[in-house]
């Protein structure tokens, strides 16, 4: 658990982060959203003390981060950044092994961990372990960057616009990979982005920042339904609200029994995709199938539309 209290950073006259307080529970993904200059990256970097706070405290599992030397603190926290920051003079394997090596793990354990992570990120170890970062594609580099951040099995992972440099298709893939891996390891994640879409997709809680202040910290549906300030509403985009809300729900939630015509939709698809499909094909209802392709019922367009209304 991370507890941030009254965290503040002043640069001379300028207050970049202003008395921010928030708590992230174990296994949550907290996404910090804001425009550039909102202080979101500074807030993130104060958690692993890449920036020393002017005042306020950060506690991780009850321990004040100032009670450990900064470099030791950082070795316990995974850190992934935009543009991956891979060491260009070290192989992929050596890059992933960075923190375990710093922590003095034995060689066999490090090698096994490197291979495990490479396989996990769908990079066959035999093929990729000894390549140089410059020989990888952008998407592969980014995956190695996240693998490196996870190498020492940190309970906490900080990510600064980790997918910012990727094209939309690879980004979507990287996001779903991250969700899968987070589910598998139960890692607590704090992620910074300027993209509200990404925040809603990934976050179990979203923190909206502007001019150094935390405006709202709440689950995505609440942020969409009840934006705390006009700025938050603007960031979500008023015209986008119903669709953002739909993207949070799954087809599975609204399945009812009964037949329907035409191409089926997966139970794991988002309500937004299901609604789009209804509109595009002009159907009142869609047949729903589970992951194995077996029919489990249908979903009605009106039910979806009802879900898109402002929650009371």
């Amino acid at each position: 658990m991370i507890e941030i209290e009254a965290l503040t950073k002043d640069y001379l006259e300028l207050t970049v982060v202003d008395h921010v307080g928030l708590t992230v529970a174990d296994g949550e993904i907290a996404v910090i959203v804001g425009t550039s200059g909102s202080g979101k990256t500074t807030l993130l970097r104060m958690i692993n003390r890449l920036i020393e706070p002017t005042s306020g405290t950060v506690k991780i599992d009850g321990q004040d981060t100032r009670d450990v030397p900064a470099f030791e603190l950082r070795r316990r926290i995974g850190y992934a950044i935009q543009g991956h920051g891979l060491f260009p003079h070290r192989t992929v394997g050596q890059n992933i092994a960075t923190v375990p090596t710093l922590l003095g793990w034995d060689k066999g354990k490090i090698a096994a961990r490197v291979d495990e992570l490479l396989e996990l990120f769908q990079l066959p170890a035999a093929e990729f372990r000894d390549r140089m970062p410059s020989e990888l594609s952008g998407g592969q580099q980014q995956r190695v960057g996240v693998a490196r951040a996870l190498a020492a099995e940190p309970k906490l992972l900080l990510m600064d616009e980790p997918f910012g440099a990727l094209d939309p298709i690879i980004r979507a893939k990287a996001q779903s990979d991250l969700l899968a891996i987070q589910k598998r390891f139960g890692t607590t994640i704090v992620l910074v982005t300027h993209d509200m879409e990404e925040a809603i997709h990934l976050g179990s809680r979203i923190a909206v920042m502007d001019k150094g202040k935390l405006l709202q910290y709440a689950p995505p549906d609440e942020i969409i339904a009840r934006p705390a300030t006009p700025f938050v509403a603007e960031l979500i985009g008023t015209g986008e609200r119903p669709f953002r809300l739909l993207s949070l729900g799954k087809v599975r939630d609204l399945v009812e029994s009964g037949p329907a015509q035409g191409e089926p939709i997966s139970a794991d698809a988002s309500l937004r995709d299901a609604y789009a499909e209804c509109l595009w094909t002009g159907r009142e209802m869609l047949p729903v199938v589970d992951a194995d392709g077996a029919s489990i019922g249908r979903i009605r367009r009106d039910d979806i539309a009802h879900k898109a209304e402002r929650p009371q």
Partner: peptide, 27 residues
């Protein structure tokens, strides 16, 4: 040096010395 790389070196918890010898000088 590429800023992302030096940033990453700090972020993974290298000490000043480890950063100099392991990352900055080799690059």
């Amino acid at each position: 040096l590429p800023p992302a790389v030096t940033e990453a070196a700090r972020g993974v918890g290298m000490t000043d010395r480890q950063r100099l010898l392991g990352v900055e000088l080799p690059l």
